[in-house]
């Protein structure tokens, strides 16, 4: 284990061994290879360099690379674990793993906390939630009066901010999500369950011995 080396066709920056990635995640080796098919398609959509740029990520999400979206930026930043402005295959698989139906609830809750903690202060603050609300209203072309936005914020913080300090800490978030499990829906991608049927071509590119899968 751990000494498998990819051959030339698989060489790209950050491309880790499928057997090693499968050992770290809920994915099987075949599933990691199927994810590589998806990764190749996304990472070659603008520049074929074996890395996913923000532009390529947005193109895959919206089929339009010019679309700026606060949330897509945020998700991309969480995929960009090494803070290099690009996502390599290993991080792509490890972050998608959090979205696996079998991933732990704790990991999903942690991920959403980081997602909404826009400024990385360790708290989800009222200003951050307001900023996200305004962004979703713009995105959906829905108009709400400022007063209505404040009412939504009041209601949310009344439920979530148990110690009434005006911000949501990690333990408050944990309790809030446990009471409102619908908030974790975005964290589970059923597609990941049968990724090998979505990308069957992985079989033709597989370089791992069948015994290892």
């Amino acid at each position: 284990m751990g000494c498998f080396h990819s051959t030339a066709s698989r060489q790209c920056p950050g491309h880790e061994d499928p057997v090693f990635l499968a050992s770290q995640t809920a994915f099987s080796v075949s599933e990691v290879e199927a994810l590589f098919e998806l990764f190749k398609s996304i990472s070659s959509s603008v520049i074929d360099d074996g890395l996913i740029s923000k532009e390529e990520f947005q193109l895959a999400l919206f089929k339009n690379k010019k679309k700026e979206n606060l949330f897509a930026n945020r998700i991309f930043d969480l995929f960009d674990v090494k803070r290099k402005g690009v996502v390599d295959f290993g991080d792509f698989v490890r972050v998608l793993n959090v979205f696996h139906p079998n991933a732990s609830q704790e990991d999903k809750i942690d991920f959403t906390f980081k997602l909404y903690d826009l400024d990385g202060t360790g708290y989800i603050e009222r200003d951050e939630v307001r900023q996200m609300l305004i962004a979703i209203l713009c995105e959906s072309e829905l108009k709400l009066a400022d007063e209505t936005i404040e009412q939504i914020l009041d209601k949310t913080f009344k439920e979530a901010d148990v110690n009434l300090d005006g911000k949501i800490d990690k333990s408050e978030w944990h309790q809030f999500v446990t009471k409102n499990p619908s908030l974790l829906k975005i964290m589970t991608l059923q597609y990941l369950r049968d990724i090998t049927t979505t990308f069957p071509s992985f079989v033709f590119h597989s370089e791992v011995d069948e015994m290892a899968t």
């Binding site: 998806l38 398609s41 996304i42 895959a60 999400l61 919206f62 089929k63 979206n69 606060l70 949330f71 897509a72 930026n73 945020r74 998700i75 998608l96 979205f99 997602l115 909404y116 939630v129 996200m132 609300l133 962004a135 979703i136 995105e139 959906s140 829905l142 709400l144 209505t148 009412q151 939504i152 914020l153 209601k155 949310t156 439920e159 979530a160 409102n180 619908s182 908030l183 829906k185 975005i186 991608l189 597609y191 979505t198 990308f199």
Partner: peptide, 25 residues
């Protein structure tokens, strides 16, 4: 009615948070 929802249910409606579309290749 939006005021009956909590802020995060609204936020989660963003297409930017719904990664399912990554799989529509």
């Amino acid at each position: 009615k939006p005021t009956a929802m909590n802020a995060f249910d609204l936020i989660n409606m963003s297409k930017g948070l719904n990664l399912g579309s990554l799989f529509d290749t």
